[in-house]
Design a protein around this nucleic acid. Structure first.
Lengths: 248, 248
DNA sequence: TTACTTCATGCGGTTAATTGCAGGTTTTAT
DNA sequence: ATAAAACCTGCAATTAACCGCATGAAGTAA
């Protein structure tokens, strides 16, 4: 096999599989690993692939970090816009923290008059900049990881509130296991919020749909509305719709 | 699995869930926890994630408040340094908000172990970044002007606390009228703090000394310590020293 | 055709990277 | 205080990468 021919094949395979091992190529094309390595180095030098220890990665694979970041950011904005449409003047709104909730805060229209309850510092900070929103901070011990107040006092405060709507930014939702999370304190908080709220709205990028974590927050049937960046007709969400959840 | 590939997966998961445990990753990817730890450390070194004990956190979750130009910044730093010397390990500390308190928060030594109570969002945010400080947020309605929680619930929470020391950033202090302020809610808050604290420390740049505002917080005799950027011997402070206040 | 040059390849030996593990220490949680 | 979990360090085994060189193929000019 000619050198050019071999390299073309390598590029093809890398783009096809996003990754390739030197050892595999060597076996397949029946040349020494040194030759493969030389090929990979040349191709890497021509910026056709990304050479790594043990093989190579496709260019698109490596870029996928930045893309996903912007991607989910855009997705969260879409979710936020949908969520905002559920909030009406005069409502009492409970929210968790999380980046999706932050986007929700930023998407609130200036003429909305409502009262927001939260224990999340970043969320409170966003609400604070809104001209017509009353912000009530739920006090307790501040969790440094999640930047939200957690503990018994926070829970009992939440239970005193009769909110119209609660927005939960969730980390994992699954038709079998419902909403799950990895932080015990956050789980307690979310459970209290669900209990205290007339309507429970779950915000989740589709990547988190059909994933589970260790601790259970609630069942799918406890949710009233599910918002993702996808259209409600998406097949991925069909089973949730069938469980009686409104999909937006 | 290639190392780069694994690290890409880790970044993706961290960004997806905001937080990840080394043990979970180890199970999922089927490599030893040591390998995961090494990956996390590398990624942390590349500033892609935040490494914490037991796992890692997403970077996007740690946006900090903007550092606007603080008036009389250098003086407030001097005051902060003096104030910090009063805080000992294990203390319960009550603080208001205000830029001087923010400087106090930043001046805290890393090895200080103490519990801080505050209703101030910016102050809480600074305390949160300290490794060994427990932060308790005092909840209630958020005052947008002063970025601190105010109201009856906050007051009664403060009264439940038996703090060792309270730091008040004040707006006006005068030998005749004592501490005065212009915001009714803040006045209530400060009064409660004074009541709940064994020791009351007032932080004030000298510009605010010998000025008065409309609402009275307390008398000079209710203060234990006064800290300004001036030396204790300064004649401007002599009359306060004569009233039995410790000047630092 | 022949002698010469260039290039691609494989191989032996060496160096570097990656990973898991044993141990001892630090941190965390109870 | 105490026990469990997480951490770090050094080490060893495995694997990949690199270097230099020999071989032979392919091309080139006389």
């Amino acid at each position: 096999m000619l050198k050019k021919e071999r390299q073309a094949l390598i590029i093809h395979k890398v783009n096809l599989h996003n990754k390739i091992l030197s050892s595999d190529l060597s076996q397949e094309i029946n040349v020494s690993e040194d030759t493969i390595r030389r090929d990979l180095n040349e191709l890497a030098h021509m910026k056709k692939i990304i050479k790594v220890h043990g093989g190579a990665l496709s260019k698109s694979f490596h870029n996928s970090f930045k893309h996903t970041n912007i991607y989910s950011f855009e997705n969260k904005k879409i979710i936020a816009r949908k969520a905002v449409s559920l909030i009406k003047d005069g409502m009492f709104v409970l929210t968790t923290g999380g980046t999706t909730i932050i986007e929700l805060a930023r998407a609130l229209p200036d003429d909305l008059h409502a009262t927001f309850f939260t224990g999340s510092l970043p969320a409170a900070f966003e609400y604070m900049h809104h001209p017509n929103i009353e912000v009530i901070i739920i006090g307790d011990r501040l969790s440094k990881n999640s930047q939200i107040t957690v503990g018994g006092a926070a829970i009992s405060k939440i239970k005193e509130i009769k909110a119209d709507i609660a927005f939960l930014g969730v980390n994992a939702i699954d038709i079998e296991n419902g909403i799950t999370d990895s932080d015990w304190d956050i789980v307690q908080l979310k459970q209290a919020m669900i209990e205290s709220s007339a309507k429970v709205v779950v915000l989740s990028i589709s990547e988190k749909v059909n994933t589970t974590m260790r601790l259970k927050v609630c069942n799918v049937k406890d949710i009233d509305v599910l918002i993702t960046e996808l259209t409600p007709e998406n097949t991925m969400l069909a089973c949730y719709a069938k469980s009686g959840i409104e999909i937006i």
